[in-house]
């Protein structure tokens, strides 16, 4: 791990200002992903800004019947919140499908959104990776590469990594909004649909956050009801990243919303695919995965996604 200086911020605004004042600074909250990457020298911040003292650890109700989840609310606390379990149960289901009990106790709402990909070539510093070293190339797309876990849609010639979060898939199907503050003290509200970037030619930028900009909260609109479920398919029964995951909200009349994890650089949802829900899983996936560009190793994800949704629909 490279040496770094360290400070504690007492407000989000102060943290954002401090980040803008230090080249190579990073915010640290739970640290479960950042420290892992710092040990491997994939992340090499020269200055850490500890944001745990900024007071953003509350879940409050909004005027329109929604919830405002502070950036520092731990994954365990969010999953266990009685309001979330009753009104937005797909979020609890997604949270408890991710990581381990120890990690969920530490990992935060904002940090979960900002976690980096688990692409094995991003993690292996002996391999070229455009996300880790822009312009280096993408080992995941070289002949014989192990791409079983990697993305099938929304990807580019520069990068086929997926976003690893389960929580974000539920937030996408719930139309969450990410609130931020900039070093200039301005606030932004970014729909989660627009928060994570597709890689294009610049896969090193995972999100639309600007330098020094800090997430302060994630808001959920008022509950939409319906039957809510999260189905995660993975290589182990627990504590593994998704091959494919499906977040589903289904209304009694058969309409609803679908988002996928494990297939793209961001939680993957399309309005035209939602509209096909009354027509079954095959119709949804024909729209949702139209344009997919899988490798030989991960083409199974197209079939798996359809079957995962079909399994949820069969549960009623």
């Amino acid at each position: 791990m490279r040496a770094f200086s360290y400070e504690k911020a007492t407000s989000a605004e102060a943290a954002a200002r401090a980040a803008a004042a230090h080249d190579g600074a990073r915010f640290i909250a739970g640290g479960t992903n950042l420290l892992d990457l710092m040990k491997l020298e994939i992340e090499t911040p020269v200055h850490l800004i500890d944001v745990n003292g900024t007071g953003l650890d509350q879940i409050t109700e909004t005027a329109d019947g929604g919830l405002r989840i502070g950036a520092l609310v731990r994954n365990t606390a969010l999953a266990a919140d009685p309001r979330v379990r009753a009104g937005w149960p797909v979020l609890t289901r997604a949270l408890v499908a991710g990581a381990s009990g120890q990690l969920r106790n530490k990992a935060t709402t904002a940090g979960n959104l900002l976690q980096r990909t688990r692409c094995p070539y991003f993690y292996d510093t002996a391999q070229p990776c455009n996300k880790r070293s822009p312009g280096a190339g993408c080992a995941a797309q070289s002949a014989g590469a192990f791409s079983r876990q990697l993305g099938i849609i929304g990807i580019s010639d520069a990068c086929i990594a997926t976003h690893p979060s389960d929580m974000a898939v539920a937030m996408r199907v719930l139309d969450a909004v990410v609130e931020t503050v900039t070093p200039e003290g301005e606030t932004r509200a970014i729909p989660i649909a627009d928060f994570h970037r597709l890689p294009g030619d610049t896969p090193e930028q995972d999100s639309v956050l600007r330098p020094g900009e800090m997430i302060t909260a994630v808001t959920l609109p008022a509950p939409v009801g319906g039957a809510q479920a999260y189905h995660k398919v993975r290589d182990r029964a627990s504590y593994a990243f998704a091959l494919v995951s499906v977040a589903l909200i289904r209304q009694p009349d058969g309409t609803g919303r679908v988002a996928l994890g494990g297939v793209a650089p961001k939680p993957w949802r399309r309005a035209e695919a939602d509209a096909e829900l009354p027509n079954g899983a095959a119709a949804v996936m024909a729209r949702l995965l139209d344009g997919a560009r899988p490798t030989d190793e991960n083409a199974f994800k197209i079939t798996l996604a359809e079957r995962a949704l079909a399994a949820l629909l069969a549960e009623g």
Partner: peptide
């Protein structure tokens, strides 16, 4: 795994100064 303020965490993924 150890307990911090009553919650179990991975001590390897947390900085002492925090």
């Amino acid at each position: 795994t150890c307990s911090v303020n009553g919650a179990r965490i991975n001590a390897c993924l947390s900085l002492a100064v925090m």
